[in-house]
Simulated assay, not measured.
Amino acid sequence: MSVLNFLVRRHPSNSEPVRAKEELIFHCGFRRFRASPLFSQHTSADKHKLERFLRPDATLVVTVYAPITFPPASVLLFKQRSNGMHDLIATGSLLSVDPDRIVIKRLVLSGHPFKIFTRTAVVRYMFFNREDVMWFKPVELRTKWGRRGHIKEPLGTHGHMKCHFDGQLKSQDTVLLNLYKRVFPKWTYDPHVPEPVPWVRSESALPVQEVEME
């Protein structure tokens, strides 16, 4: 077992939203299994941003725990309906078997300026104790209106902090702090996949033939 990364693209025949960590059925090479994968961007960087949904307009990387397979094995992704039928949602191939590929999730903390001076401001509601302010002091700050800054020092014991920016803030501006956390796929590998229910045409859908009365 290892971490498999599949490069897939959304199939045009399906438009239902598919969330990350939702159970899907994989047809990879000669194997078929169920798992709850992660979706991430396909870039040349060493860190890749997590995607919350399987986007229809981009090629994404699907990460899952599964048996080791040699690339470039083809893969089909299916979603099981409540009635047992399988819907094809994406197609692609095996990109790599790499447990060191880093998938990160971005979290944004927000605060509001309390007192504004020339290039400094007192920000509150981002943290609620002095220790958190000291811990995140090296992280750069930004605002919705494009200002950049950093934490200068904490004030008091309730999370207020003095921040320095490259310009004067507006009272309606919002101070933001970006945090990144590495995420891992869930261990939900299941080799037992039920057979899909065959599609049967109902009698109501059959064409009605006119019968002449004798």
Rank of each mutant, 00 (worst) to 15 (best):
E23F: 12
D173I: 00
P154I: 08
R124F: 13
Y65T: 00
W135G: 06
I89C: 00
F136T: 04
H150L: 02
D87Q: 01
V175M: 11
E210F: 15
E212Q: 15
D166P: 05
L60H: 08
S204F: 13
S93M: 04
R55D: 05
L50K: 01
G92W: 00
A121V: 01
K144E: 05
R124C: 12
K49I: 01
V200G: 03
R31M: 11
E140K: 14
K152A: 12
H11M: 04
L7V: 05
P17V: 14
F136L: 14
G84H: 04
E140S: 11
S110Y: 08
L107Y: 06
E195F: 08
L50M: 09
K79M: 08
K115A: 13
L177P: 08
F127V: 07
W145M: 08
P154D: 08
W199I: 09
N5D: 12
W145E: 07
M134H: 08
P207D: 12
A20Y: 14
R52K: 05
F39H: 06
V183H: 12
F165I: 07
F70D: 04
S93N: 02
A90W: 06
E195K: 09
A58R: 06
R106W: 03
Q80L: 03
L206H: 13
A20S: 15
A58M: 02
E203R: 10
H192V: 05
V61D: 02
M213L: 13
F26P: 01
V139F: 15
P113C: 07
T59S: 07
T63L: 04
D190V: 03
F117L: 11
V211G: 14
L38F: 10
V133G: 07
S96N: 03
L169A: 07
P194N: 10
W199T: 06
G92L: 05
T188W: 02
F53G: 01
V62G: 09
E22V: 10
S74W: 04
P37N: 09
S15H: 09
V197A: 14
K105R: 14
S13I: 05
A35M: 06
A121Y: 04
D132N: 10
P154R: 09
H42A: 13
V200K: 15
A90S: 03
E195H: 04
E131Q: 14
D132Q: 14
L95N: 02
D46I: 03
L107D: 14
Q172A: 13
F39E: 03
I102K: 13
R52G: 10
V103W: 08
R101F: 05
H27Q: 15
L141C: 09
E195C: 11
T120M: 11
L206P: 05
R148D: 00
N83V: 00
Y189H: 12
V193R: 11
H27T: 04
F184K: 08
A66V: 05
R119W: 07
K162D: 07
R34W: 04
K152E: 11
F39V: 01
V108H: 05
N14W: 13
S74A: 12
T63H: 10
H48E: 09
M161K: 10
